[in-house]
Design a protein around this nucleic acid. Structure first.
Length: 506
RNA sequence: GCGGGUGUAGCUCAGUGGUAGAGCGCCACCUUGCCAAGGUGGAUGUCGAGGGUUCAAGUCCCUUCACCCGCUCCA
């Protein structure tokens, strides 16, 4: 792929109204982005395609049977106990320690310390847990400080988090020489906090959801009782989620407010491997189907040491990854497909005290069990960003200098309708065609300036087709079709234009 | 959080302590007969923000915000 400059893409997004920085007139705010008119259409097309293809249209599963998926739309703020059950209140807090000397940052719970047994005033040496080099280095520094070789029995070990402020002051960092350069552990709370009720009080703390998945699990029993779904089935949700990321970076890729498209697919525990593989492969094909078909898309199976706590014993976790300009030659995650086992339903069963409600009664097998879950969890903003990156094609040969080659189904504007010149009855005919097409599609009418400028503007917006009414239209009822990607022109009858467009947009 | 870089019109960028500029784009009219043609006219700036030095700051100093790169982090 040609090297796409992220700066140029960001500039185009601003200039043409795909993406703006949030609250830009006040200097912006780190990690938050707004979608402009074209960007909103693009992102809606992505989300609509996902909803149509996953929930509304027929999907055929690995067993040849139709796949059943129903939708929910849950609140962003939930009872805070949900996040205790899910593990986010505990797991989302990583205390961090910075070293003022080496400028390195460590997870406090990954730091261990060495000291001379019984010594309360000498120096303590920190090292990184399960890092043998770091351990050996700390031991060498300790021996040098004590000025003799030490046996294992002479050495005290403890966690950095167990040290008092006084002890931290005499502690030497893993990559430092002088003591006292490590800061006290600082909490990085990745969940946004708020208060429910007008009075701020520790008793009414709530969180903005860090994932949409828990709304689905919390409604598992409601969906079972209100619909006729039977395992295997899925519950889908599209919605905002919030994470107080340490470092928002790379345009919209790591935003603090973002939108997810998630399915929790509930299955019999013994069919996990089959469904996991099917979801992984069909989600990969889906991204290809909306235009990410080049070599920029890859499927990556997680190594066992990077599996999340809920996926340890499962059939696996895969990332569907896209080669973004800022990750190239590496890849960045678009969607994760994880076998979450029965972790979440079990957690909620324990925490809410209604164990049986979270279990599923399988009438066919006459047994009650916690279904296992395959979770395809996609980022709508990351998907939109990938569509933008994939579409962005510099082309010095054309007047715009760049063309956005969106898949027609994703393109924000499906067609432009122009009178070749703004007189001689052409605008009237063009406007009639525009109003006719507009009944079903997003199309634009533009009678102003030269025809070349109008084609160029449509190239930048990624509009796949333009229909131009000229002198011949008035006599033989045909129009010119201009194709964005090939610059090719052909003529078709004006009354066939709506059907011609429908056919190409699916 | 740390280190480095950047910030002037919608965009790309000039700007020597002394009146805020250009090209492109945008808008109107004319012209225009298939790829940003031409003419005439027009609108557009808290020079990222706040403070300071100075007779005078886009320019020098301090603080801060945002973006980019690296480190760190990413349940």
């Amino acid at each position: 792929m040609a090297t796409v400059s992220m700066d140029d893409l960001v500039a185009l997004c601003r200039r043409r109204g795909f993406i703006f920085q949030s609250s830009e007139i006040y200097g912006g705010i780190n990690g938050f982005w707004d979608y402009g008119p074209l960007g909103t259409l693009l992102k809606r097309n992505l989300k609509q395609a996902w909803w149509n293809d996953m929930v509304e249209r027929e999907l055929v599963g690995p067993d040849g049977q139709p796949v059943d998926i129903v939708g929910v739309d849950c609140t962003i703020i939930m009872n805070p106990k949900v996040w205790e059950a899910s593990g986010h209140v505990g797991g989302f807090n990583d205390p961090m320690v910075d070293c003022k000397e080496s400028k390195a940052r460590y997870r406090a719970d990954h730091l261990m310390c060495l000291g001379l047994k019984g010594d309360k005033v000498g120096q303590i040496f920190a090292y990184v847990e399960s890092d043998d080099t770091s351990l050996a280095q700390a031991r060498r520094k300790l021996e040098k400080y004590i000025k003799r070789e030490l046996a294992d029995g002479d050495i005290d070990r403890c966690a950095f988090t167990a040290l008092s402020a006084g002890e931290r002051a005499i502690t030497v960092g893993p990559d430092a020489k002088t003591p006292g350069t490590l800061t006290e552990p600082r909490q990085f709370n990745l969940m946004f906090k708020t208060n429910v009720g007008a009075v701020e009080d520790p008793t009414n703390i709530a969180y903005l959801r860090p994932e949409t998945a828990q709304g689905i699990f919390a409604n598992f029993d409601n969906v079972l009782n209100s619909t006729r779904v039977r395992v295997p089935f899925g519950i889908a949700q599209v919605g905002k989620a919030f994470r107080n990321e340490v470092t928002p970076r790379n345009f919209t890729f790591r935003s603090r407010e973002f939108e997810q498209m998630e399915i929790e697919f509930f299955i019999r525990p013994d069919s996990a491997a089959e469904w996991y593989a099917w979801w992984r492969d069909s989600r990969f094909r889906w991204w290809q189907s909306i235009g990410l078909s080049s070599g920029n898309l890859q499927l990556r199976e997680h190594a066992s040491d990077e599996l999340a706590h809920y996926a340890k014993a499962g059939a696996g976790t895969s990332d569907i990854e896209y080669r973004f300009p800022f990750t190239a030659p590496g890849f960045g995650e678009l969607e994760g497909v994880a076998h979450r086992s029965d972790f979440d339903l079990r957690q909620h069963a324990t925490h809410c005290g209604k164990g049986d409600k979270m279990r599923y009664f399988d009438q066919e097998r006459n047994e009650r069990y916690f279904p296992h879950v395959i979770e395809p969890s996609a980022g709508a903003d990351r998907g939109t960003l990938a569509l933008l990156c994939e579409a962005y094609t510099p082309d010095p040969a054309r007047p715009s200098g760049v063309v956005m080659r969106f898949h027609p189904r994703m393109a924000p504007v499906k067609a432009g309708v122009f009178p070749l010149v703004n007189k001689d009855g052409m605008p009237e005919v063009a406007e009639r065609l525009y109003r006719d097409l507009r009944k079903r599609h997003v199309v634009e009418y533009d009678p102003k300036q030269s025809i070349g400028k109008r084609y160029a503007r449509m190239d930048e917006a990624g509009t796949p087709y333009c229909f131009t009414i000229d002198g011949d239209t008035l006599t033989n009822q045909t129009v010119t079709v201009r194709h964005r990607d090939t610059l090719e022109q052909s003529r078709i009858a004006i009354d066939q234009v709506p059907a011609w467009l429908d056919e190409r947009l699916g």
